[in-house]
Design a protein around this nucleic acid. Structure first.
Lengths: 217, 217
DNA sequence: TAGATTGTTAATCGATTAACAATC
DNA sequence: TAGATTGTTAATCGATTAACAATC
């Protein structure tokens, strides 16, 4: 029997599978073969089958395919979307506010419990129903409310300092949008979302068009 | 002789090397060994050496290391930061405005020539000195000004439609921030920057802490 | 000279792709 | 039954890591 292990690249594909499956569901489609998922994303169907074999709790049926509803549930479960996490967001600039408006996060189990900023204009107000606090309160509020995830959308200059406070406050993971390599204890996961890295790939491709760089991230 | 080719993962590391090297330069450091770069990012020094071997135009010197200034120039050249590209940005919400404020992009050769939106409140105004136009003008302005890069920061619902217009307008690459797999002719590069993908990795890790997922993107 | 650091070649690891057997 | 689709095992490809020779 195959080991039920999914590659990191495979995990990255799951949100796209999920999006496609939800569209099928809305259109009332009950079953889907791996080939249809593969076609929608321009990848090989074997890859889809391997990914699904690692995460689906019921096997696909020959001549029929996979049950759309079951697959949606399995992917959501594997990605932990049924496992609520409490978070704080630090840095209420445009990027921070873009995240606050991204309702998918809430649907996927991420509850932003508090926002932090340095601007006196924002402190004490609320954004999308979430209170904005001064940075000084970060450690205490994280501890009191048992916060698991810290989101850093500050300027790069204070990102490490904010990160240290989040760690002190006891978070398990940091979602970092600043272009900096954060130093953290090894038990903490840092997930980087770095526009500078994404731009580097784009710029490099435009400067060296002979290189074959794939469209995937 | 080694082939001077850099892996995609290697390209993703370059912006971090660059950031570290610029800090050294500010501090007046003239030479740096690969081991110092590796230490700053918690990676193996052999990996740094391989990456640098692929992009540096002068070799490193035994007992001394690499020249900081030369390395900065070589990385910037390899990433195409000395190769200016003209761009348009579609979708002037929080995420779009965050990008407009990200001055690194301009320093790295990306000039945003025009912004597009559907909101009558924004059309005709300017953001950070860049004029906001109605979506109807997208194709024409791309053609007239020879735009090379289209940036999509719209809601997911209109992303494919905007993408089609950018392709019609003749862009070579699309920097896509919407959670959607864009269908484009094969000559066009799509660089995805997808928060939903990044979040999936984070959420999966929190739900299955036994899995060893690395901190790198 | 000895030692720090470089660059290269070979080995390992991880992910994708190909070939094929199993099943409804 | 034939054929569509599944899942698995083996082969290939790409990236990292280890071992080592070269140089100032």
């Amino acid at each position: 029997m195959q080991e039920r292990v999914l590659s990191i690249q495979g995990i990255k594909r799951l949100p796209y599978y999920l999006k496609f499956l939800k569209e099928l569901k809305v259109n009332g489609v009950a079953y889907v073969p791996a080939s249809a998922i593969a076609d929608s994303l321009n990848i090989y169907e074997v890859q889809v089958r391997k990914d699904l074999a690692a995460i689906s709790r019921q096997p696909g049926k020959p001549r029929v395919g996979f049950t759309v509803n079951a697959l949606i549930e399995d992917i959501e479960h594997f990605l932990g979307y049924d496992n609520p996490n409490s978070a704080v967001l630090v840095g209420a600039g445009h990027l921070g506010q873009a995240l606050m408006n991204y309702s998918e996060l809430e649907n996927h189990g991420l509850n932003i419990a508090a926002v932090f900023d340095v601007s006196p204009d924002l402190i004490g107000k609320s954004i999308r129903g979430v209170q904005v606090y001064a940075l000084e309160e970060l450690v205490n509020i994280c501890r009191e409310r048992n916060i698991e995830v810290g989101i850093i959308t500050t300027p790069v200059g204070c990102a490490q300092e904010v990160c240290d406070k989040l760690v002190e406050g006891g978070v398990k993971a940091i979602w970092n949008f600043a272009h900096i390599y954060l130093h953290v204890p090894s038990r903490i996961l840092v997930q980087n979302e770095d526009m500078a890295v994404s731009y580097a790939l784009l710029s490099n491709h435009l400067a060296n068009p002979m290189q074959e760089i794939l469209t995937e991230e």
